[in-house]
Nucleic acid binder design. Structure first.
Lengths: 171, 171
DNA sequence: TATTGTTATACTCTATAACTATA
DNA sequence: TATAGTTATAGAGTATAACAATA
C-alpha cells in the first residue's frame, strides 16, 4: 500500500468508438508473440521464420524481394534470415533459369514436415491465448483480422510493393 | 516480365481457420502506424507519446511504473519519454506526498488541448486506414479488438504487471 | 531489505549505402 | 541504365545492471 489507487484503470482509452486501436492491436500482437515464442523456439528467427515457411507451404516459390515485401521488411534483412533457414535445411535457394539474378525460394521436404508440426502447435498456442475469450468472439475476430489485413495489404501499395510488382509484371 | 508468376499470392496462410493471426495483426498494426505517423509527428515519441496522453486524459495520475506496465515497456524506457513530454509541457511529474519515491504523472492544460486535437485527427486517420473496408466490418473489428485486448491484458499477469500491482495493493 | 526512479551500457533489430552479377 | 541480391555499417529501440532516494 502507499498508492491510494490503482496505477492504471486498464483497457483502451476511448470506449465510445475505440480510437485506441493501436493500443488494442499492440496488446494482442505482443501477447500472441509471447504465446507462440516457445512453439517457434527452434525455428531460426522465430515467428519470422515460421511466416516464411507458411508462405512457401502454400506452394509459392517467391523471390527474396517478393518475400521481403510480403513480410513488410527491407530486402537487406533477407539474406541472413534465408541463410539461417537454409542452414537448417528448411528451404533452399534456386537460381531462376529465366533470370539468373533471381533466387527462387523453395521449401524442402524437411521444411514441409516441420511446417506441419508448427501449424498444429500454433493452433494450440492461439487457443491458449484466447482462453478467456468466448469462442464465437475469437473466431469472428480472427476471420475479420484476416479479411481486413488482406484488404489493407492490397489497398496500400506503399505498404505492399508486392502488388506493385504484380502490376508491373502484367503490363 | 522475367518472372513467370507473381512474387507472392498475398493474404494470410491458412484460410481455413486463420492460423496466421500474427501476419494479419502485423499488417494491420504496421498500416495503422504508417497511417497515423503524420498525425503524431509533432508529439515526442509519436504514437507512444500519444498513448501516454490518452491514459492521462482519462483522468488517471499513474506512476511511471504503472504507465510502463500499461504500455508493456520496461521501466527504464520511461525517464527519457517522460522527459521529452515534460519538456514539451504536455505533462508534469508530481511527487506523491504519501510516498515520496513515487512520481505521479499529470496532464497539463496544454497537454489536454493537444490531446483533443490529436483524438480528432486520429479518428480521421483511422477512417482513411479502413477506406476500403466496409463500415460495419470496421466497427465490429475495432470493438472486438478492444474487448479482446482488455481481456488478455487482464488475464496475462506476465504481460500485465499492472494488475499484479493492484492485487498486491488490495492485500 | 524492498521499491521507485534514474543512469550508463550493451544488445537486437532495422535501415542506409555501396558493391556484384546479371539484364 | 536498371534490378536482385549481398555486405558492411550506422541508427533506433530495447533491455540489463548498477545506483540514489525513500519506504
Amino acid at each position: 500500500m502507499g498508492a491510494e489507487d490503482g496505477e492504471c484503470s486498464g483497457g483502451p482509452t476511448d470506449g465510445a468508438f475505440g480510437t485506441d486501436l493501436g493500443w488494442s492491436l499492440g496488446v494482442i500482437l505482443r501477447a500472441w508473440h509471447q504465446q507462440v515464442e516457445r512453439v517457434v523456439a527452434d525455428v531460426p528467427h522465430g515467428t519470422r521464420g515460421y511466416q516464411i515457411l507458411s508462405v512457401l507451404g502454400r506452394g509459392d516459390s517467391p523471390t527474396q524481394k517478393g518475400l521481403a515485401e510480403h513480410l513488410s521488411i527491407d530486402k537487406t534483412v533477407m539474406p541472413y534470415v534465408i541463410d539461417a533457414l537454409e542452414d537448417a535445411r528448411l528451404l533452399a535457394r534456386k537460381v531462376d533459369a529465366a533470370d539468373r539474378r533471381v533466387r527462387r525460394i523453395v521449401i524442402t521436404p524437411r521444411g514441409r514436415r516441420v511446417l506441419g508440426e508448427l501449424t498444429t502447435r500454433m493452433r494450440t498456442a492461439e487457443q491458449a491465448l484466447f482462453d478467456d475469450v468466448p469462442a464465437s468472439l475469437r473466431e469472428s475476430f480472427v476471420t475479420q483480422a484476416a479479411q481486413i489485413a488482406t484488404t489493407i495489404h492490397r489497398a496500400h501499395p506503399a505498404l505492399n510493393p508486392c502488388i506493385a510488382v504484380q502490376d508491373a509484371l502484367s503490363e
